[in-house]
């Protein structure tokens, strides 16, 4: 912990006197316990959305407050945290969340996947493999995979309870009929452990196969929608697709990263007058260039 990133407690202490200061990891113990309870239920029922009492956070809802609450609830003194936004450790939001977690706990922060015990992310799973001793925390905007096909909350609950997903299938059918392909890109609906259809928002299709039978635990947090859910290690994650329509990941023909030359990572178009591509995972790209 550097002095720059520490919250300045000295003036606060003058005002509050002996009153308790900010607790470890910002949230009070009861709040953390409530989130951990919800997470235990989520792990026990893979893919099932567990309601939780989303707290007000120092970041606005929609800016990763769900993922942040999970990270703060599970973090301990021995942890090391990495936070990425669109695969980038240096995004403004990623930097802010990382500094908040580190400064409120005193734990180490890192940009390297193999050093991290908790990886909080928006939009990506890191290119580097994650292991059994690591937890991926995803910030989720829309936890309900059926939101696009049904608006009534009661009906949604019934559909999940009865595993009645025909409306989802009809929407995939309609997509294929209208566009010739299934166009849904990020947040592709997946059947988790053969039971619940689950939103993988906001990761791209590219990352979906890496959730299937993963070694690591993935926790999803939606702060605005007040839901958490989980994909435990070694769980089946099948993207919903027809038997005769193959699930395809994104590809850009012949494109390579203009920095590291990679053609087998998730590439994003970089701004500029001529089309060019760079790796979405900046830490991975940087290490390739140094190697």
């Amino acid at each position: 912990m550097t002095n720059e990133s520490a919250i300045d407690m000295s003036s606060l202490a003058e005002i509050t006197g002996d009153a308790p200061t900010t607790p470890f990891a910002l949230l009070d113990e009861e709040s953390k316990r409530e989130i951990r309870r919800a997470l235990l239920q989520a792990v026990a029922i893979p893919g099932y959305q567990v309601p939780f009492g989303s707290r007000e956070m120092p970041v606005a809802r929609g800016w990763g407050s769900g993922g942040l609450q999970i990270s703060l609830a599970i973090v301990g003194n021995d942890d090391t945290v990495k936070v990425i936004d669109q695969g980038d450790d240096e995004g403004v939001n990623a930097v802010n969340l990382r500094r908040l977690i580190a400064s409120s706990t005193g734990i180490n922060e890192t940009t390297e996947v193999n050093e991290a015990t908790i990886v909080q992310s928006r939009h990506r799973i890191p290119e580097d493999p994650m292991g059994a001793d690591q937890i991926l925390v995803l910030q989720v905007p829309v936890p309900e995979p059926l939101r696009g096909v049904e608006r009534d909350m009661k009906e949604l609950a019934r559909m999940h309870a009865e595993a009645d997903y025909s409306k989802m299938w009809v929407s995939l059918y309609e997509d294929k009929v209208r566009n010739g392909v299934i166009t849904q890109t990020t947040g592709y609906p997946c059947l988790v452990a053969g039971r619940y259809v689950t939103a993988t928002t906001p990761i791209p299709r590219w990352d979906i196969p890496r959730l299937h039978q993963a070694d690591f635990l993935t926790l999803f947090g939606a702060g605005r929608e007040k839901r958490v859910y989980a994909i435990p290690p070694h769980t089946d994650v099948e993207p919903l697709t027809f038997d005769d329509v193959e699930f395809e990941v994104e590809s850009a023909d012949g494109a390579t990263c203009k920095l590291c030359g990679s053609s087998d990572s998730f590439l994003v178009e970089s701004p500029g007058t001529t089309p060019s591509w760079t790796c979405s995972d900046t830490a991975w790209c940087r290490r390739r260039r140094q190697a």
Binding site: D164, W169, V170, Y173, E174, V177, F242, D243, V245
Partner: peptide, 23 residues
């Protein structure tokens, strides 16, 4: 708001049909 084919696909998928061509 769904196509004629989609309306028929609904009971078919509910009955477990998963082959687009056959639907």
């Amino acid at each position: 708001g769904v196509t004629a084919g989609g309306n028929i696909a609904d009971p078919l998928t509910a009955a477990g049909w998963r082959h687009f061509g056959r639907i």
